[in-house]
Amino acid sequence: MDGKPIVQLKNLSKTIGKKKIIKNLNLDLYPGQITGFLGPNGAGKTTTIRMMVGLMQPTSGDVMIDGQSIQTDFEESIQKVGVIVENPEMYKYMSGYKNLLHFSRMHKGVSKQRIDEVVMQVGMQNRIHEKVSSYSLGMRQRLGLAQALLHKPKFLILDEPTNGLDPAGIREFRLYLQKVATESGVAVFVSSHLLSEIELLCDRIAIIQNGELIGIKNVNELHHPQYYIHAEPLELAEEVLSGIGFPLAKHDKGLVIDSDEQHIPGAVQMLVSAGAKIYTVQPHRATLEDQFLEMTGGGQFAQAHAK
């Protein structure tokens, strides 16, 4: 990855009692990139995130934000971070605006103008002066995003941000995050256990299991082009396609072949002239779930769950 990392986890570890919750985590995050943080429940996602924002103290190791340690230069480093930890809990007895005012006073250089700007950005100008207790979950989530963006952070960290949102809300949230990342060059770190959600949102995923980082992959790398072809009779199609030299595998009712787009018309032509009836030809994406299970070795995932 090009550029300097904005966030670095260095041998981050946490021991609670005798149990090692987090074991020597090393991870770099880059500007403009959305990194997903995946893992089964209890793998240590939340603990890691809490150590990254100063809510928990690491037993050993450190978190560097833009070159400054979160432990020795807390105020300077955390100034660059916007945080949403699980459901954004606000002061329900105050209006959304007062909540934002409250948090803005805790940062240096957030003007009233900036508050209005953020309110517009998240589209809450009509209801910002109503009490938070009257807001829906989606509105609260947007207010949560607003408070995280107030001070123009270079790094946005979100713990299970889409918990409890409806599909439209999730989509809106996703598009918004992607906009922030690409337009302002903000590094985003999102934890979730929703694989499909992470797949749509992220450029890169880091997978944690039992407190250990077991893999970091770019989402694009995960996808080499594949096509799904359903043709009858199947045996004939298989014979023809493997005859041309496509690597293939059976999937569902048809076949999945590894191939670039440009070879597909030719393949179809061959199948037709061989007398096969073609029902479906479509691009095929292996889901992240498949990849995830592959990486975590499937069974272990279930084991971790059972723990």
Partner: peptide
């Protein structure tokens, strides 16, 4: 209220 998370992740 859970607002402690919001309060302590500020540069203060």
């Amino acid at each position: 209220q859970g607002t402690i998370k919001m309060l302590l992740t500020r540069p203060v």
